[in-house]
Write a protein that binds this DNA or RNA. Sequence first.
DNA 1: ATCTGCATTTTTGTATACAAGATATTTGAC
DNA 2: GTCAAATATCTTGTATACAAAAATGCAGAT
Lengths: 215, 215
Amino acid sequence: MEVRRADKIAETLEQLVFSGEFKDGERLDELKLAEQFCVSRTPIREALHALVASGMAEQIPRRGVFVRQPGPVELMEMFETMAELEAACGRYAALRITDSALDRLVAANENCQRALAQQDHAGYYAQNEIFHQVIYESAANSYLEKQALRLQNRLKPYRKVQLRFRGRLDQSMAEHVAIVAALQEGDPEQAAAALRGHVAVQGEKFYQLMASLNS
Amino acid sequence: MEVRRADKIAETLEQLVFSGEFKDGERLDELKLAEQFCVSRTPIREALHALVASGMAEQIPRRGVFVRQPGPVELMEMFETMAELEAACGRYAALRITDSALDRLVAANENCQRALAQQDHAGYYAQNEIFHQVIYESAANSYLEKQALRLQNRLKPYRKVQLRFRGRLDQSMAEHVAIVAALQEGDPEQAAAALRGHVAVQGEKFYQLMASLNS
DNA sequence: ATCTGCATTTTTGTATACAAGATATTTGAC
DNA sequence: GTCAAATATCTTGTATACAAAAATGCAGAT
């Protein structure tokens, strides 16, 4: 799929920004990166433009591109938007979901519970991700699905933090059950509300954590 | 704001794709465009990448970038997504809108009505755009606002078509009034529902039109 | 010592040159 | 005449060279 070196570099840089290797506001030096990746400036520049397009960096003309780690406010806004996107997916999924997708949803949920019992955090995250992605897919709107996937990916590094809250995992599982129930019932309003709340609380927990750290 | 030639070129290409100058599937030849714009391939390539990033073109490695005009199904999906984004904005706006924003909303609405009375279509479009943008802004979520603005801009060329339907303009105005009322009441559910319906019907009308043209 | 103006040095943006993969064409066999 | 293989041509991707704008450093004046 990706034969161009620039694309691989973009992917690597994305990971480095995600992992916090690059601090907020840091300038991404074309020459240094070119040397570091053993390529010329050209593919580096293309990779940097990709970063800018995905919102992880900002370009100031004739000045360079700077990493743009979202602050607490922007993160909260992104979680809020995610909540609405998921609510939208849930709304349509309630009307359009297939039986096989419902099965996969239940299966992912059971896998979540199993991972939880085994203290397998990585497994839980993976299955949780699948759970939500099945809902995006079941909205039967590939454009909406793509948007949801994009933002889900963007928020991934921040979602992990919030699950450390006391009892959050159990609560999260209970919410999943309610979501599945609403989808099985085919109730758009209830599915939307359940998903909105489920995601929104993540943002709020995260915000709480950020606030507690900054005081 | 934009000192880089590549950015101006990207903007121009965007317009050309919007206006249908470039047909769906057409390859955007770097050399020809470079000659046409009297620049080298480099800024052209950057502009093409911008087009790809905004979803108006597709890049196939080692093959080139091709214009990607959305088909009826994808357009319908985009309208559906727009409806949900606007509903989300309306939901939050009902809780967060300021008095001054409400005033601007009413003013834009009156300007719409005035333009309608004078058969000033361009004026109507402009004021209608402002009406919706005030709502995005009033959601007090700049991330969500940005997403809404992006999709609104992307759908702009298609929205105009749909307003030609008999009586659609009058109906649209009535919906605007209902939206303002819900926001004034501070009722999130009603605001969301009103906006969802208002935008979704545009998609439906558009789909009807496309279907009638293809038969 | 600090600030201002000029010169130097980086660094971005663009043009050109080169490499490699994809497409088109030609030539030969059947 | 059709098909296939080899060659030629074209196009993208990358490297390098050049131009222009911004940042930096230094000298001199206040």
